[in-house]
Nucleic acid binder design. Sequence first.
DNA 1: GCCAACGTTGGC
DNA 2: GCCAACGTTGGC
Length: 159
Amino acid sequence: MNYWLMKSEPGELSVDDLAELPGRRVGWFGVRNYQARNFMRDQMRCGDLAFFYHSSCAVPGVAGVVKIVREAYPDPTQFDPQSPYFDPKAQGSSPRWFQVDVELVKKTRLVPLSELRAQGALASMRIFQRGNRLSITPVQPEEWNNVVRLAESAPRADV
DNA sequence: GCCAACGTTGGC
DNA sequence: GCCAACGTTGGC
């Protein structure tokens, strides 16, 4: 079983949006980076857990926990000319982009990026590595446990 | 809006 | 296969 961090822009899909969806599930469409795609396609398995991370917003940070409930299958938006994620090079016979389905396990308090950064034990996380921009990154079990503990603790006012 | 970092594209 | 140009990401 693996742990992950998956970024979503709350303007597109927030943790509250996910909580309102049928079954609290969504297909993780729109990933257009090969490395992130490969993580989904080759390594994500049903039962894996991931942090739902809010990015490109006023307070980026961990907002919830989701579970992988369906393994990789073709992302339909790549074939939809109306979609901003349309990829004219994708062929139905050999899809280029994949998605998994995730289900909300629970919302957490919003753990801001600044608070994660203030934890020395989390310095190893991929989101803190130089120039990291991947929307999906693996999380080590120890990192996972540390962030979960942080999410369950009282918010800090000083970061 | 800025900008650093890095991925992708395409001519050669 | 190289590499310059361009596009995107994402925190600030």
